[in-house]
Amino acid sequence: MLTMNNVSKVFRTDTIETTALQSFSLQVNEGDFVAVTGPSGSGKTTFLNIAGLLESFEDGDYLLDGQSVKHLTDKQLSRLRNEKIGFIFQSFNLIPDLNLFDNVDVPLRYRKLSKAERKQRIEHSLEIVGLANRMQHLPSQLSGGQQQRVAIARALAGDPLFLLADEPTGNLDSKMADSVMSLLEDINANGTTIVMVTHDHAQAERAQRHIQVLDGKVTEQHNGPVTAVPLRA
């Protein structure tokens, strides 16, 4: 479903070349929960940006849902992002002027959906994250954990093929972090593929697969223990 073959990425300034990814290869299958770890500067964020179609790459190929993304236009890439990928960020990236309803609405606006359909999807995904009763609130009225839940709702509303999470618990205290992790696990258990970048090894251990990135390469890849997912009623 997500296949990278020998992907390379080099950052250039006037004087320096930095190789961020070098012959990076990875296969993610439907239903996977993949954790990506690695030290600062290892290239894990670059991997996430390329996987999320936010950045281009030089060599190799990247197939998303069987389709090569290498020569797509900005419009086609935007559309793929919109329909197939849900993003979750460390700092939530909610739009402060918009209330929860409108924040979840943002990706749906770039799709030709009817008003009723959008409303139904927004309410449904806010329900999943347990914030359906606070739709008119502004992000600033919520705690950090709640804000991240809204971001997750926003990612889910588009009914994506997979979620890309970048340090989703990095700005949260351990209690909130735990509840966000449980929510992601629930979502995965319901069939959504998740790729998560983290530096927290304990969290990485909770994922099905754990990938380590070092110097722009996948250095280790093993199947982690399948955690018993506590399903909520």
Partner: peptide, 16 residues
């Protein structure tokens, strides 16, 4: 720019 980047990430094209 934060908002713009977010909208780009969730699928808005440059034209949008």
């Amino acid at each position: 720019s934060g908002e713009i980047a977010l909208r780009r990430a969730v699928g808005a094209s440059r034209t949008d």
